[in-house]
Amino acid sequence: MKKVLYKLISGSFAISLLSCQPVKEYQKMYLNDAEMTLSARKTQQSEMNFMLYREGASGANGGKTGGGCGCN
């Protein structure tokens, strides 16, 4: 089941990326929306911090991956 899921996700992304279209600046009305940013929100700053403490896994989210505090 996991393998099928991974294949589906990676397959979908591969197809999406292969079909990338050139988008000009004046066509980026949707992409430039503040909620389309490819990073965590400012309101997520504190929750990313507590998840860094409360879970063994961290990183790959633009936040800290360890160090800089007394935990993890």
Partner: peptide, 12 residues
């Protein structure tokens, strides 16, 4: 990566 006018992805 911008995929099209409505879709963008980031690999981290």
């Amino acid at each position: 990566q911008v995929v099209n006018k409505r879709f963008q992805v980031a690999f981290l």
